[in-house]
Amino acid sequence: LEAKFDDSTIFKKIIDSFKDSVSQINFMCSESGIEAQAIDDSRVLLVSLSIPPSCFETYRCDRPTTVGVYLSSLSKLLKSASSSATLTLYVEDQPDELLLLFEESKASKSMEYKMKLVDITADMLEVDSDMKSDVSVEMSGVEFTKIVRDLTQLSDSFTVSVGKDGIVFSVDGETASGKVLLQPKEDLANPENNLSISMTKTIDLSFASKYLLDIIKASTLSNMISLKFSEETPALFEFKMEKGGGIGFYLAPKYDE
């Protein structure tokens, strides 16, 4: 594998967006890009990552390769990332290490790190990427992040309901409750403020607040978040990157007995 990001902070943002959700991951590298899936220890949150060749300045992968890493180690190396540096990832055919090369052409500086790969035997879940949903919402990632930060302070459970009035985020804590209603809108001058809802059925689902706080760490990857809900499946929270690919979080709901 030889894959070069023209801006090393892109890879840092990707890794930082899920390093607190899962501790280790297998990157599956092939000619169609880098893909990965990991499940958190409680088996409630699944991270699904896709970095297609379009995200790279140059991308070459001669044969499918699995690259297992501890995310805390990788994240330490990526502290060296800067927007003025490129980052090339190298993995040999018989991989036992990942080489990261940062190059700053203006500063005539290069940094090289080598990281030992780990053999990760995690089971993978079969996720249908065309999973049917009753409700799809596209909205500002900044707005979603603020709502999650504000409301999760009040309760361990966070409820999302979608009906004819719009989308309602609410919490009902021991000492306080809160509710935010958003209606669809189109802001032609600032499309990142758009909110669209398509719905075949109303939904009313609750999630554990702590996982939502992990999910919003990926909001640095995209202006928009796409939400998919259905009463029968986990919810999908997805941040799509400008150059293609992105990160999706599948989150199992909480049900009242």
Binding site: S42, L45, S155, S157, D172, A252, P253, K254
Partner: peptide
């Protein structure tokens, strides 16, 4: 407030 479901209840292991 509710019982947390696990992903294994929804997705099959590959």
């Amino acid at each position: 407030q509710g019982t947390q479901k696990r992903l294994d209840g929804f997705f099959k292991v590959k």
